[in-house]
């Protein structure tokens, strides 16, 4: 098995790692780099628990050979907020609204919502629901998750339509 050197920006910091040819990004993040905030769910692109942002867009890291990260900017849930405990507004909103139960989908939900809000600071409910279709939550019924994103949208000047 041949190995390859790749380098990319991970949560704002340069990393260079040696990977095997068959390494998937989710396994590189969790097992080599110790970032277990990214979850492994179905490993086939159905559940979105493994969602990370690549150049700001959401991707299923379980379907991405790690080679594809070479030269890109990857953001995982660990990249949000800072070491002093400050969190981003979308994270705060999830806490305020109680938008998590078991928490397994939460990193994927928050990153997907962040990607939406970065492009569209005040999305409408339909846009929020559409953006979140790629992450499955089996606990909450989505209502509070959507409300959390709406709270940020409202704070950013959007109207809550429902």
């Amino acid at each position: 098995m041949s190995t390859m050197q790749i380098s990319f920006k991970l949560n704002g910091e340069d990393v260079a790692v040696e990977i095997a040819a068959n390494t998937l990004l989710v396994d590189l993040l969790r097992e080599e780099l110790g970032l277990t905030g990214t979850k492994t769910g179905c490993r086939e692109g159905e559940c979105g628990a493994c969602t990370v942002l690549v150049d700001g867009e959401p991707f299923n890291s379980c379907l991405l050979p790690a080679m594809k990260a070479d030269g890109r900017q990857v953001t995982t849930i660990e990249g949000l907020g800072d070491d002093e405990g400050a969190v981003e507004s979308i994270q705060q909103a999830f806490m305020d609204m109680g938008a998590a139960q078991c928490g397994f989908c939460t990193p994927g939900m928050i990153l997907t919502a962040k990607s939406l809000l970065d492009k569209n600071p005040a999305p409408e409910e339909a846009e929020i629901r559409q953006a979140l279709t790629g992450v499955l939550c089996r606990c909450t019924g989505y209502r509070k998750i959507v409300q959390a994103v709406q709270a940020v949208a409202q704070h950013n000047g959007g109207e809550v339509t429902s």
């Binding site: 692109g45 979105g48 969602t51 867009e57 959401p58 991707f59 299923n60 379907l63 991405l64 997907t112 559409q130 953006a131 279709t133 790629g134 992450v135």
Partner: peptide, 9 residues
């Protein structure tokens, strides 16, 4: 097709 995550790639 699929989800935004799938359509992006």
């Amino acid at each position: 097709v699929g989800s935004p995550q799938i359509r992006n790639v």
